[in-house]
Design a protein around this nucleic acid. Sequence first.
DNA 1: GTCTATAATTGGATAGAC
DNA 2: GTCTATCCAATTATAGAC
Lengths: 182, 182
Amino acid sequence: MSDATSKPPSHAAIFGAATQLFAEKGYAATSVRDIGAAAGVDASLVIRHFGSKEQLFIDTMKIDLDHNPLMAGPLESLGERYIDFILTADDQVRGVFLALLRASDSGSIGTELRSAHEDAFVSPIKQRLDGDDADLRARLAGSLVGGLLYSLWVVGDETLAATDHRQIVRRYGALLQALITP
Amino acid sequence: MSDATSKPPSHAAIFGAATQLFAEKGYAATSVRDIGAAAGVDASLVIRHFGSKEQLFIDTMKIDLDHNPLMAGPLESLGERYIDFILTADDQVRGVFLALLRASDSGSIGTELRSAHEDAFVSPIKQRLDGDDADLRARLAGSLVGGLLYSLWVVGDETLAATDHRQIVRRYGALLQALITP
DNA sequence: GTCTATAATTGGATAGAC
DNA sequence: GTCTATCCAATTATAGAC
C-alpha cells in the first residue's frame, strides 16, 4: 500500500477484468477462470490476490456517482435535475447496480448494496433536507429513485425506456421534488 | 388437466416444496435435490414432472395479488390505499418478488418478472386512468411502487421498515396519488 | 509472483430397472 | 410413476514446483 512495488501489474489487470465482467454478466455468471483469462493470468492468481471471488466482487463493485455539481444547485429544481442525472448514468453504473442487486442474497454483498444505496441515493439528498422528518423523506426519495432504476434496468420496461427523457424528468422529478420541498 | 388421474400426488408435493424453497432461499441456493427431499420424493422425479429446474421455477413463482376490493374503491384515495396494501403484503409475495428479481438475469425468468411487474403494479392502475399519458403515468406508478419494495425488501432499509406504516402511507401514498389524479 | 495440477464438492439431467 | 445409479460438466480453492 505504501511503496510502489506492493501491487504487481497482475493485480490491476485482475481488478480491471473483474470490474468489467461482473458488471457485464453478473456475479454468478462470471467465474474466477473467466476473470483470470480476461486478465491474461492464471485463475489461481485471482484467489491469491483477493482471497475469494466474493471479496473480489465486493472490492470492485463500487458505485461511484460524483454528483457534487448536481447537489450544489438550487434546491427548488433538485428533483428534476436528480432524475435527469440518474437517467443519463453510464453503463458502468448500471452494471454495478444490477450486479449488486442480483447478488444481494449473499450476506456480505447485501451489506454492500445497503451502503451503496445509502451513499448514492439517500445521504446526498438527506444532507440538503431540514425538518424532523428529513430522514424519512430522504429514505422515500431513495425508494423513488431506486424504483426508476428497478423498472428501467431490472424489469426492463421498454416503453419507459423509449419515452422521451424530458417527460420522465418532468413527471417523476416533480414527485421527488415534493419530498425535497413539501 | 381434464381428468383427475393426470396429476399424481407427487406432482403437487413437488410444486408445494418448490414454491416454499424458492421463495425462502432463492433460485440459485435451492437445488433440485433439496426440492426432492422436501417433497419426499427422489430428485429425478422433479425433472421428470417439470422438465427442468428453470421451468419449475417459472411455474411456481407467480405473484398472486388479489386487489379487486382495493381497485374498486374511490379513485381519490387509491394512492394511500395501494401503498397500505403493498406494505401489508404477505411473506409469500415478498419471497416470490425477491426470487424473481434476483434470478432475472436469466432470459426466460426476466420475461417472467416483466409480466409479473406489469400484471401486479402497472395494469391495475392503468385501467383506472384516463388521458393520453395514462400509460406513462401508470408505468411511473409501477416504478414508484416497485421502488418501495426494492428499498424495503432488497436493500432492507431497517429504518424504513421500523417506521410507522401510516407515515409511509401518507407521504408515499400522496406521491402515487399525484400520478393517479394529477 | 506465477503457473501446473488437482482436490473436493456440487450441480442438473438422463437411462433403465421395477 | 418412481427410484437407483450414474454421467458429465462446472465450480472455488489449495498444494507445491519453479
